[in-house]
Computed example of a mutant assay.
Amino acid sequence: MPPLSFKRLYSYFLTAITVAMGTALLYSGVVGTFIDTLGWAKGFGMPTATEETVVLFASATGRNLGAGFFVWTQILRGDKRTPGMFMICWAWAGVADCMILLRHPDRENLTMHMVNTVLAPTFGILLLRS
């Protein structure tokens, strides 16, 4: 069996990243929308959230659910370019998440959201170029 080439390993790496992102989006969408909206809001970075204040939070995790289904649809189609374009555009969801936290008086996890906002388009560009 011939050794794996760099090109093939790179392709596997990009596929694994895409699978991980699609799975994370689906997971956060299911948990945040249907299972534990309050807990997910607190983990998102709003530690003082209450049942009354998270009434619209499920819309944020609902968008993750739709995004995860989209990414997985493209994975199953064997398409890497479309998820690449999507991840570049998805950075705006990260910008919106950062804005929510910047406006929240007791914010946490802002750095994590900022890093994700940079990583999504970075991997998107790598997928487009693959």
Score class of each variant (00 low, 15 high):
1 M>G: 14
1 M>I: 09
2 P>S: 08
2 P>M: 09
3 P>A: 11
5 S>I: 03
6 F>R: 10
8 R>G: 00
9 L>Y: 05
9 L>I: 07
11 S>Q: 13
12 Y>I: 13
12 Y>C: 09
16 A>S: 15
17 I>V: 15
21 M>K: 08
21 M>D: 01
22 G>A: 09
23 T>M: 13
23 T>Y: 09
23 T>R: 10
25 L>F: 12
25 L>I: 02
27 Y>H: 11
27 Y>I: 13
27 Y>S: 11
27 Y>P: 08
28 S>K: 12
28 S>T: 15
29 G>W: 10
30 V>D: 01
30 V>R: 07
31 V>Q: 12
31 V>K: 13
33 T>A: 10
33 T>S: 15
34 F>V: 06
36 D>F: 03
38 L>F: 13
39 G>L: 02
39 G>V: 03
41 A>L: 06
43 G>P: 05
45 G>F: 06
46 M>Y: 01
48 T>N: 15
49 A>R: 03
50 T>D: 03
50 T>Y: 06
51 E>L: 11
52 E>V: 07
53 T>N: 11
53 T>Y: 11
54 V>H: 06
54 V>L: 08
54 V>C: 06
56 L>P: 03
56 L>E: 01
57 F>I: 03
59 S>W: 13
60 A>I: 11
60 A>L: 12
60 A>H: 04
60 A>V: 13
61 T>C: 11
61 T>Y: 07
61 T>M: 00
64 N>H: 12
65 L>A: 01
66 G>T: 07
66 G>L: 15
66 G>E: 10
67 A>Y: 01
67 A>Q: 04
69 F>Q: 02
69 F>I: 14
69 F>D: 01
69 F>P: 03
72 W>E: 04
74 Q>M: 15
74 Q>Y: 05
75 I>T: 00
75 I>E: 01
75 I>G: 00
76 L>D: 01
77 R>Y: 01
79 D>W: 10
79 D>R: 11
80 K>L: 10
80 K>I: 08
80 K>Q: 07
81 R>A: 12
84 G>V: 04
87 M>T: 00
87 M>I: 00
91 A>S: 15
92 W>L: 14
92 W>K: 04
94 G>K: 02
95 V>W: 04
95 V>I: 15
96 A>T: 08
97 D>N: 13
97 D>C: 03
98 C>L: 01
101 L>A: 02
104 H>M: 02
105 P>M: 02
105 P>I: 01
105 P>V: 02
105 P>C: 02
106 D>G: 00
106 D>Q: 14
107 R>E: 00
109 N>M: 14
111 T>V: 15
112 M>D: 02
113 H>L: 08
113 H>W: 14
113 H>C: 05
114 M>N: 05
116 N>T: 05
117 T>P: 05
118 V>T: 10
121 P>Y: 12
121 P>M: 09
123 F>E: 06
124 G>K: 05
127 L>C: 06
127 L>W: 09
128 L>N: 14
129 R>I: 00
129 R>W: 06
130 S>R: 11
130 S>P: 00
130 S>W: 13
